[in-house]
C-alpha cells in the first residue's frame, strides 16, 4: 500500500479553481516529483496535503489514514513534514530556535539529538550560524534551514516545495545531492519543482501539473525522455 495516496483532489480559492482533480501516490522510500510552472497549482497541492488549505473535493490518505479534514498540527504528528518555499522560516528566531520548533512534538530527546546532529552534518553551514537570527541567512541557507528543520521532526514523508527556487546553480546541485541522501536513508519525498531536469534526476516517479490538472505521469526516466516534456520543461528544442 502506498504511504501517500491523493485522489481526485480539488482546491478552490474563492472563484479560483487552483487544483482540478489531482491524483497521485507515493510508495514508501520513493521520491515523487511534481513538476509545474509558477501558478500551476503545485504549492496548493502540497498545502492541501499538509492541511493548510481544505480541499473542496477528493481525499488524502497517509499511512492508511484519511487525513483530508485533519488540522495541520495533527497531520505533522502522524509523521508528515512540509518544508515550505524558501521564506517559510521564522526570521524572528535564531537558527537554533527554528530547529527546536522542528522537534516541537517529539519527546524522545536522545533520538532528537541524533537527528539534529545528522541534519547539521548534512548542512554544516547551519552549524556555524546556530545563534544567528534566521532572518540574516542568505543564499541557500534559508532553504537549508527549512529542510533541516523538517528533518528534525524525523518525518516518514517529507514535502519539499521548490528547494531550488532562486538559488545559484552550485547551491541547487548541493541541495539536490542532499535530497538524494535523505531519500536513500529511507524518507519518502514529494518534491515540487520548476526545475524539471534536477527533479526528474532524483525522482522515481514524476507528474506534470498544468493549470491545476495533471497532464503527464509516469516513471521519472520516461518523463525525462518524453519529447513534449523536454520541450516544455527541460529547455530542449
Amino acid at each position: 500500500m502506498a504511504l501517500l495516496e491523493v485522489s481526485g483532489l480539488e482546491v478552490r480559492y474563492g472563484g479560483i479553481h487552483a487544483v482540478r482533480g489531482v491524483s497521485l501516490s507515493g510508495e514508501e522510500g520513493q521520491v515523487v516529483a511534481l513538476i509545474g510552472a509558477h501558478g500551476a497549482g503545485t504549492t496548493t497541492t502540497l498545502r492541501a496535503i499538509s492541511g493548510l488549505v481544505r480541499p473542496s473535493k477528493g481525499t488524502v490518505r497517509f499511512a492508511g489514514k484519511d487525513i483530508t479534514s485533519m488540522a495541520p498540527h495533527q497531520i505533522v504528528a502522524l509523521g508528515l513534514s512540509h518544508a515550505p518555499e524558501g521564506r517559510g522560516i521564522f526570521a524572528n528566531l535564531t537558527v537554533d530556535e527554528n530547529l527546536q520548533l522542528g522537534r516541537y512534538l517529539r519527546t524522545d530527546n536522545a533520538a532528537v539529538h541524533k537527528d539534529r546532529e545528522h541534519a547539521l552534518s548534512l548542512f554544516p553551514r547551519l552549524r556555524e550560524r546556530l545563534q544567528q537570527n534566521a532572518g540574516t541567512l542568505s543564499g541557500g541557507e534559508p532553504q537549508m534551514l527549512a529542510i533541516a528543520r523538517a528533518l528534525v521532526a524525523r518525518p516518514r514523508l517529507l514535502l519539499l516545495d521548490e528547494p531550488s527556487l532562486g538559488l545559484a546553480p552550485q547551491i541547487v546541485q548541493l541541495i539536490f545531492k542532499i535530497v538524494k541522501t535523505i531519500a536513500s536513508e529511507g524518507t519518502t519525498i514529494l518534491l515540487v519543482e520548476q526545475n524539471a531536469h534536477m527533479a526528474l534526476s532524483v525522482a522515481h516517479t514524476g507528474h506534470v501539473l498544468e493549470v491545476g490538472t495533471l497532464v503527464h505521469s509516469g516513471p521519472a526516466k520516461q518523463l525525462a525522455a518524453d519529447d513534449a516534456i523536454r520541450k516544455a520543461y527541460l529547455g530542449v528544442h
Binding site: L52, V76, P84, G88, I89, F90, L93, Q100, L101, R149
Partner: peptide
C-alpha cells in the same frame, strides 16, 4: 513561549511545526 513567538511570526508555518495554533 516558543510556540507563541512562532505563531506571532507566521501562523501557517507554525502549524506545520505541529503547533496547535
Amino acid at each position: 513561549g516558543q510556540a507563541m513567538r512562532a505563531v506571532s511570526f507566521d501562523e501557517r508555518t507554525a502549524a506545520l511545526m505541529g503547533i496547535n495554533v
